[in-house]
Amino acid sequence: MWKLQISLFGILFVVIFVEATVIPHLWSPLRVDLFIGMIIGLIIHTPYSQGFPFVILASLFLQAFSGARLGYLPLLYVFTYLCIDLLKNIVYLENVFTQLTIGFLFFLVTTTAVVASVQGSIIDTNLGALLFGAVLTGSMSPIMATLVRHLKSTYES
């Protein structure tokens, strides 16, 4: 269990580096959320007792790299975790296209929700970057989910 958690945090640091340094360097308004893919992977491949605490802790780590008020990002990711966990009973989450769609939709939904609660209008956001970010997040979600599955299977065997 601990090995898995430590490895997950290792991946999280890479995710933060990519999200906070690499992606903005390529195109300043662009943001990609690789953590949504990790959440999908955690829901599918790890029990609630391992996945949920990791999401809370990891979102606190992510909070350090945002100007959002304290608790905003944990709230957002816990909401995402619970929603996808509920969806698990409705849709076949192991499917790559389902993961892709969920990644795409949740990026759009969470960003729109934050925009609505903070500045009021989605029009004030760079829509091109928002859509491109959603597409990239969707595309990366199955990869991140597969990464979690590989970690889990490695430590189980």
Binding site: I16, E19, A20, T21, P24, S28, P29, R31, D33, L62, F65, S66, G67, A68, L73, T111, V114, V115, V118, Q119, T125, N126, A129, L130, G133
Partner: peptide, 14 residues
């Protein structure tokens, strides 16, 4: 500059 905000809405840098 070391890093930028990971969210699209908030604007902060490290």
């Amino acid at each position: 500059l070391l890093a930028q905000d990971i969210t699209m809405v908030f604007k902060s840098v490290i």
